[in-house]
């Protein structure tokens, strides 16, 4: 049996609607209108123990709903789901002991208390033995560099500090599974890197299974081998990021830095897609022309100072998929 398994999950929400303006408000007093939104429309997947899975999709695609079902907070309308052999919403208390969660935009720490008191509170809530708690906490304090933060009230932490503390809070009861919802949102570059390093270590060294929901594709590229893409409640892709890229487009890019403004740059096998002063972006199909042939032609005909070959940015690819699947 897979570690986490979801089969044909369906969840429908009712969204209230009313016409704008005072007339609409008055009509709304007598006549309630609304429509059904399918947040999950037959979602199925299986996750092995120790995987680090990226879960992406536009806003409102069904990501959070999936996580809430897996966490036992929401009961799906139909479909089945097991996490470590348990049905989350039926065996909630036993289930939640095995999972941890960080919702990047919300904190689980107690606003008015010093960080360490939130940690003590979580120890008592999960019933972790004192010695075990001290050991786990010491480890987290070292890896996440929390030492100087422990006695600070949560409201006085910076976002990056708070996120490190939130990560520690979610791991105090040594969960086997960690749900992360945008753990790097709003963080500056060093803080992002610190969070990513920590997650990588956690996954490799402790074997914690991680489900990472994010809009930051750099997070996914840095951390996840496998990506689930969801839109309109359906899984559109389940595989590596490279597969996803190939599925949408096989094209590659050449970026040239020229000595002149390169007005005359053109090639039968490549198309100019963007000009930024003396920098020119070209796109080509590697099945029609090899990169080396194209580069030698371009360098022979133009005063090229520097060049790079790259994949189209992942954001562009995702945006294309979102657009293609828009209903």
């Amino acid at each position: 049996m897979p570690f986490i398994e979801a089969e044909h999950l369906v969840k429908t929400f009712h969204v209230s609607e009313r016409e704008p303006g005072i007339g609409g408000a008055l009509r709304g007093l007598f006549h309630r209108r609304g429509r059904e939104v399918r947040a999950l429309d037959g979602v199925s997947f299986a996750i092995r123990e120790g995987e680090m899975l990226g879960y992406i999709g536009p806003n409102g695609a069904g990501k959070s709903t999936t996580v809430k079902v897996l966490g036992g907070i929401l009961v799906p309308d139909s479909g089945t789901c097991t996490v470590m052999g348990r049905v989350p919403w039926k065996d909630r208390v036993a289930h939640v002991r095995t999972i941890g969660a960080v919702f990047g935009q919300r904190t689980q720490l107690w606003w008015g208390l010093p960080v360490v008191e939130s940690f003590d509170l979580l120890r008592d809530i999960y019933g972790v033995a004192a010695a075990e708690h001290a050991r786990v906490l010491a480890e987290l304090v070292e890896v996440l560099e929390l030492g100087p933060l422990l006695s600070t009230p949560v409201r006085q932490l910076s976002l990056g500090q708070r996120m490190r503390c939130d990560l520690a809070a979610s791991l105090l009861h040594s969960p086997r599974i960690l749900f992360l919802d945008e753990p790097t949102i709003g963080l500056d570059a060093p803080a992002k890197l610190a969070v990513r390093d920590f997650l990588r270590k956690l996954n490799r060294e402790k074997g914690v299974t991680v489900l990472l929901t994010t809009h930051d594709l750099d997070d996914i590229e840095a951390l996840c081998e496998r990506v689930l893409l969801i839109n309109h409640g359906r899984i559109l892709h389940d595989g590596t990021l490279a597969d996803l890229r190939r599925r949408v487009t096989g094209e590659k890019r050449v970026v040239l830095d020229l000595a002149d403004d390169g007005r005359d740059v053109s090639d039968p096998d490549a198309t100019v897609i963007r000009r930024e002063g003396k920098r020119i972006h070209l796109s080509f199909d590697p099945t029609r022309v090899t990169a080396s042939a194209l580069i030698s032609r371009l360098t022979a005909n133009h005063p090229v100072r520097d060049l790079t070959v790259e994949n189209p940015p992942i954001e562009e690819i995702i945006a294309r998929i979102y657009k293609d699947t828009a209903a």
Binding site: V96, A101, R106
Partner: peptide, 20 residues
């Protein structure tokens, strides 16, 4: 106030993830 805020902002999700 904290309970009301947790329901309004959705932080209640964390509370529902506790074994209590």
């Amino acid at each position: 106030g904290e309970i009301q805020e947790s329901l309004r902002s959705g932080t209640v999700a964390y509370e529902m993830l506790r074994p209590v």
